[in-house]
Design a protein around this nucleic acid. Structure first.
Lengths: 222, 222
DNA sequence: GAGAATAGGTGTACAGCGTAAGTGTGTCAA
DNA sequence: TTGACACACTTACGCTGTACACCTATTCTC
């Protein structure tokens, strides 16, 4: 952060190159041009240096991409101080925040998918802590809280992956399933209208509701 | 398939290059060396030709990877004729089959994540049809069946993604969360044992159960 | 102040990537 | 025999990540 501070220098008008500036530039490129556009040369051009200069601030490209992941994590929308006492409702809000964050950076999912166990820094674990806290306060045991966290977390990741990858029907292009034969694929044919014109938000809420209410029942049963 | 048959030729001992042989080789490389190892040159070497020869059978690398996706889809473990009349239970079995398939090809998730709306061929829609059929027979409306399909489908994808990417604790390396301060991350610290030593199968069943039972309640309420 | 050490930017080079374009070569139909 | 065609090969171009050497400006030590 401030360890490059040189008190008496006139700063020379040149914003110094830092890891932060590099990862931010990479994230910006990823958001606007896609993950595959993020190359060392492209990022270097973005910050106004040559490619090899980046290596004074990141170990290699893998390290750079880990930095991008952390950058995204930092944007996690922490909920305001819990308003009501319905902690499961708070969990719902946290889940929505996660989805929004992942949709803000559509290539983030792709990045997560190819990254093996990213850094377990305190900062990037904080969102997890917030979620676990909500679940525990809702009355779930530590064990169940972990299970629920993984369930809902998995759901969010998978849902956004399908959503951003258009793995299911795209409302903008409702001409899906044109030549599905009702004999070969009877259920797909029958459900085609709902598959083609689906409201992503409504779909997401459906699944989220299924899980939250299931948890509520589980808490009540204890 | 058999359209390259040349009746009177002695076949020259040389297995002919086909799209199928290429995609199978690519899948094999993906499974054993990871998705990033799948290059045109590497695949060509695998089947015993030069890189450019592949282009007589696939349009480009993107087309090749679509072929790999279809290859995986073809392996979907279709359930035997429904044993009982509990269609939700059948859905549970289908979900397990999907997870197993994705775990058999650990890089498949990564492949799906970077592929935009893969081919909607009849063959690759069949697994979807089977799942939708089970949900509709369970008593869900067409609309709810689609929602449930997307919910459970998303869950499976996301779960396997976290699972194969070790996005959560690796039981083999239980030395996770070594220096988590209980003040900063109280819930993570409290749940650490469950986070570090988690049984993937049990976790998966927890989430699956939450959704299946939620659907059962929804059916009963109608 | 003089010299050494260091930090941080640059230039060149190499192996590997996807693939456009051109060059055989073996098998077929006419 | 001739022409066509399918299909494998060769070469080449611009891209990638990064090892290595080089240069310069600042800072530290005496």
């Amino acid at each position: 952060m401030g360890r490059t501070a040189t008190p008496a220098t006139p700063a020379k008008q040149r914003t110094p190159l830092t890891r932060e500036r590099i990862t931010q530039a990479a994230l910006h490129i990823m958001d606007t041009e896609g993950l595959e556009a993020v190359s060392m040369r492209r990022v270097a051009r973005e910050v106004g240096v040559e490619a090899m200069s980046l290596y004074h601030h990141v170990r290699d490209k893998d390290d750079l991409l880990n930095g991008v992941v952390e950058q995204v994590m930092r944007e996690f929308p922490f909920p305001q101080e819990p308003v009501g006492d319905d902690w499961l409702e708070a969990g719902r809000e946290i889940a929505r925040g996660w989805r929004d964050l992942l949709r803000t950076h559509p290539s983030a999912i792709q990045l997560f998918a190819e990254r093996k166990s990213p850094s377990a820094s305190e900062e990037s674990l904080r969102p997890m802590d917030v979620a676990l806290t909500a679940l525990r306060n809702a009355g779930l045991s530590d064990r169940d809280a972990v299970q629920a966290f993984h369930t809902i977390g998995g759901y969010i990741f998978g849902y956004v992956m399908m959503e951003t990858g258009r793995l299911f029907g795209d409302p903008a292009a409702a001409h899906d399933f044109p030549d599905v034969s009702p004999e070969q694929l009877p259920s797909v044919a029958a459900c085609a209208p709902f598959l083609a014109n689906c409201d992503f938000d409504e779909q997401f809420e459906f699944g989220l509701d299924l899980m939250i209410e299931g948890l509520r029942a589980k808490v009540g049963a204890n």
